[in-house]
């Protein structure tokens, strides 16, 4: 049995809102089916507005789809009884793109990481502290960071704290929505490395949502492409992305920017003149 199964999910926004009454027919997701096996990472690529985050929210139980089912370890997350839902919530964590707005600015790193532990584990004060220090070390931080506030961390460090919190309950699946997109390459590489380690050590699975082809390729095992709410490609092996003849995929590949000014394609109209 797959860890997560998305079955024929269709969704459009606005059914409960008077503002978009007329848009009700416009589908944000149409007939999406996919699955994630334990210990693997499914990458989801797609243009801005394609519906990636919406699918993420549907999987997290935050946006009930109009049609279709989300099965987590075989249980429908929207109809399961409270006991099972509580278990699912514990095993299903999320890390968003913006590390700063995901945390309470008035809480220390220790409090931020402690929150899920306090909700689910009844640890003694000493045990909890030890657990938090271990988590910090796991993500490359240390005990000295316990009492720091969010503004005292860089974006990359804070994203590690978000990851520490997400893994604190040893979940089965983490939904990562553009979690490394705003980080520089040095920090991106460190975090992707960390995610890979956690996957190997704890058998974690990821649903890795991104618009960034390189990071998706680095971390994923399987890969899907969402375009205007439709899952146009689903690859059992990520390498297929590079040989696919699908026009959307070809366009994506063709738009990757070369990382050297010699291969510029945007500023070509004027000759580059050397300035002092």
């Amino acid at each position: 049995m797959s860890l997560l199964q998305v079955k024929e999910v269709t969704h459009s926004y606005g059914s409960r809102s008077i503002f978009n009454w007329k848009d009700r027919s416009k589908k944000v997701l149409s007939d999406i089916s996919l699955s994630i096996e334990e210990g693997t990472c499914l990458g989801l690529l797609g243009k801005s507005g394609a519906g990636k985050s919406t699918l993420g929210k549907v999987i997290l139980g935050l946006e009930r789809p109009q049609n279709g089912q989300i099965l987590f370890q075989g249980h429908d997350i929207y109809t399961a009884d409270n006991h099972i839902r509580k278990k699912i919530r514990r095993n299903l964590q999320v890390v968003f793109q913006d590390s700063y707005s995901s945390v309470n600015p008035r809480m220390t790193a220790e409090r931020i990481i402690a929150e899920p532990l306090e909700n689910y584990e009844k640890l003694t004060v000493a045990e909890q502290k030890r657990t938090i220090v271990e988590l910090l070390e796991r993500v490359g931080l240390s005990e000295v960071d316990l009492k720091k506030y969010p503004h005292q961390f860089s974006g990359g460090q804070l994203q590690r704290i978000n990851i520490a919190r997400a893994i604190s309950l040893k979940p089965k699946l983490i939904v990562l929505d553009e979690s490394v997109s705003s980080l520089d390459m040095v920090n991106q590489t460190l975090i992707l490395e960390l995610l890979r380690e956690l996957k190997e050590d704890f058998g974690l699975s990821y649903f890795f949502i991104t618009h960034d082809i390189k990071s998706a390729y680095t971390i994923s095992d399987t890969l899907g492409v969402l375009e205007k709410g439709e899952l146009v490609e689903l690859y059992g092996s990520k390498n297929q992305f590079f040989t696919s003849e699908h026009p959307v995929v070809k366009e994506m590949r063709g738009s990757i920017l070369a990382e050297h000014p010699r291969y510029r394609s945007v500023r070509t109209r004027e000759k580059h003149t050397k300035s002092i």
């Binding site: 801005s48 793109q97 553009e178 082809i213 366009e251 738009s255 990757i256």
Partner: peptide, 12 residues
Amino acid sequence: EPTTALDVNNQK
């Protein structure tokens, strides 16, 4: 960081 949330097509 004006294009961190954009796919390659829209970035361009």
